[in-house]
Nucleic acid binder design. Structure first.
Length: 158
DNA sequence: GCCAACGTTGGC
DNA sequence: GCCAACGTTGGC
């Protein structure tokens, strides 16, 4: 697909896991709760319908990319910011002037061999991944070359 | 506008 | 559970 871009989103499986995404209606979920401006800008402006998304499990013994997803709805206001009962409530965000945005993603394929952080660190061609250098960014860009290397590893193992 | 304090993320 | 990295806040 021309102009298709690639991304990586992180989630702690205890909060929302790959299995949770698979169980969601139409295997689709709102990627809500992102409260970081750089990540927000990517969600709001850069991620387009059809873009590829790696689903990464963080804060576990073996952090890893476990599946691929696709963007099915582009940036729109994150309504959880308006809900005082939500853990992601932010009174600075209003319906008139939303601060936080999200996209919808749909699960595409599970990687038969999850690509661990450890593998990423020692795989030639992945040295420059944002994951290794700005590890705290929860939505980050992935190059096409990186995407292809990781998809291949995920199919066949390292 | 600087920068110290603070809070959160996330690997280990 | 620790702590380094780093984004955000707020006093000045």
């Amino acid at each position: 697909m021309a102009g298709r871009r690639y991304w990586l989103v992180k989630s702690e499986p205890s909060a929302f896991s790959w299995a949770d995404l698979l169980k969601s209606p139409h295997r689709t979920a709102e990627w809500d709760g992102v409260r970081n401006f750089q990540a927000r800008n990517l969600l709001k402006n850069e991620m387009k319908v059809g873009d590829g998304v790696f689903f990464y499990h963080s804060s576990i013994p073996q952090p890893a990319i476990v599946g691929t997803a696709v963007v099915v709805r582009e940036g729109y206001p994150d309504h959880t910011a308006w809900d005082p009962k939500s853990a992601h409530y932010d009174p600075k965000s209003t319906r008139e002037k939303p601060v936080w945005y999200m996209v919808d993603i749909r699960a595409e394929a599970e990687l038969p061999y999850p690509v661990t952080l450890e593998t990423i660190k020692r795989t030639p061609g992945l040295e420059e991944m944002v994951l290794l250098h700005r590890s705290r960014l929860s939505v980050q860009p992935v190059t096409e070359a990186e995407w292809n290397i990781i998809v291949a590893l995920g199919k066949k193992g390292a």
